[in-house]
């Protein structure tokens, strides 16, 4: 069956002043696929991800979301963001709201769905990430792993077609990484289209459908995880994989 192209990037370039952080990026993300962006720090992975949500402005090139080219001038970026959710390294839960309020905030105030309905849906999502008992707790009471699972539920509450993860486990204590990865794996199995910037190689290998290795602002190599990890073609990729502990 032909998979729909959810994201298509052509010739994307981005600079901060003299620093050229993304160089002629070409990439596509197919429906229900999990694409893992890996590479050393400063390689441009996070910037690329943030471009997909328009938190960073590209300098040139094309970004097509579900077949439509999106330009901040002509498109309502907020509408696109409703379709493309984002999970951050540092969670960014809203500290003045309870867990439940965090999850229903965007559905009730952006999509304007009735509060009762939003609460119903939020409870389902919290159950899904295993945090039903934390609905009325403030984020300051949660562990890092719990915060990140709430952040995932909050993003899911907008019913996005695509979820972006920006190093979702990098700020967590080692023993809390597993619970977040498990939640993400569950989402992947349900067919969510995901783009994940990660340093968790075992997650990339196990859950990823496509691996993209970036270095110095370029896509050096990409491919399905089996071939990518067992038979890397590029010298840079081999070096990187050797330094990464499995």
């Amino acid at each position: 069956m032909e998979q729909k192209e959810m994201i298509r990037i052509r010739n994307l370039n981005k600079s901060y002043g003299n620093l050229h952080v993304l160089k002629d990026i070409d990439m596509k993300v197919l429906d229900s696929d999990v694409v893992c962006l890996i590479g050393p720090s400063g390689s441009g992975k996070s910037t690329l991800l943030r471009c997909l949500n328009y938190l960073e402005k590209k300098d040139s090139g094309q970004i097509l979301i579900e077949g439509t080219e999106v330009e901040p001038g002509t498109h309502d970026i907020n509408k696109i963001r409703e379709k493309v959710g984002m999970v951050f390294q540092h969670f960014y839960l809203f500290p003045h709201m309870t867990v439940l309020e965090n999850v229903i905030e965007a559905p009730t105030h952006v999509k304007k769905i009735p509060k009762a309905q939003a609460i119903e849906e939020a409870k389902v999502l919290l159950a899904k990430v295993g945090l039903s008992d934390k609905a009325d707790v403030y984020p300051s009471k949660l562990s890092g792993g719990q915060k990140q699972r709430v952040a995932i539920a909050r993003a899911l509450a907008m019913k996005p077609d695509i979820l972006l993860f920006d190093e979702p486990t990098s700020a967590l204590d080692p023993e809390l990484v597993g619970e977040v990865l498990a939640t993400m794996k569950e989402l992947a199995l349900e067919g969510m289209t995901m783009v994940v910037v990660t340093h968790e190689m075992s997650f990339a290998r196990e859950v990823g459908d496509w691996i993209v290795f970036m270095h110095n602002g370029r896509v050096v190599e990409s491919g399905p995880p089996k071939e990518f990890f067992s038979n890397p073609q590029e010298e840079r990729t081999k070096e990187f994989l050797q330094t990464t502990v499995f």
Partner: peptide, 15 residues
């Protein structure tokens, strides 16, 4: 207030 708070809001489709 952490810039991430605004980004989190914006990423959920908020103006």
């Amino acid at each position: 207030i952490d810039k991430g708070q605004m980004e989190a809001g914006r990423s959920l489709g908020m103006s």
